[in-house]
Nucleic acid binder design. Sequence first.
DNA 1: AAGCTTCACAACCGCCTCGTA
DNA 2: TTACGAGGCGGTTGTGAAGCT
Length: 255
Amino acid sequence: MGRAPCCDKTKVKRGPWSPEEDNILKNYVQQHGTSGSWIALPLKAGLKRCGKSCRLRWLNYLRPNIKHGGFTEEEDNIILTLYHNIGTRWSVIASQLPGRTDNDIKNYWNTKLKKKLSQPPAAAASYLHSRYDNMLPYFPKASQIPLPRLMEVPENVENGSYDHPLFVSNISPSISNNANGSSSTTTTMSWSTNGSVEDDAFLVDLGSELFPYDDHLNAFGDLYSNLGYNSLPNVISNVSDEHEQQSMMYRSLRY
DNA sequence: AAGCTTCACAACCGCCTCGTA
DNA sequence: TTACGAGGCGGTTGTGAAGCT
């Protein structure tokens, strides 16, 4: 026996919303809010709709500051990167894109981005490089993974005496060939709190924010260019901790 | 112009989570 | 601790518009 439906579907209207229904719902929510119950709202507002349908209509279409269509390159970047990191958690992805809804992003992914990324490797690479040369690593706010940030070496730092920054001791990429002929690059970055300024280590500041913004990303780009790489990594795939030295793995775009 | 196919996106379905009694 | 209901979410479907033959 299945779960009881949230409303009597024989007594509620279904399908597309009319402008009149939109007005009723919009006016009611703006004046009274949801009163803590979407289920009870249609009755109070005078709508012959399921409460869930009202909630969805409001969240995805009627609430203020909703944006539809016209995704920017930056939004593409964020969606692609987060999808790579966390999969189909559309609500989390939407939380990083002001004005966008999970439904909108899901539709956009299913109709546009997914198709572009399923193109043959050469075409996909061309598309990615043309669109995402400035791809930046975004991560969900809930992530516990700190992002390293380059900083100037304070004068008083001597062999790890400074307790907050870390010393990057190694960045090593490795390329693996996939069965379908494409390849992927995995880069491991290692650091410790006991580095030395003199031994060509890089000093990074973990900072306190969990969500990286431009300053983090620019700094990380600097770090990479200093090492002779010309593309930014975009995915943190693993974090390990062994012998006081930590490693973070980044995987570059498939190409 | 008509019929068919593809695309875009709104809306629904049903499962899962969480708060509360 | 358990049961229940509402909200949240991701997957899927329905439908109108646009494009193609």
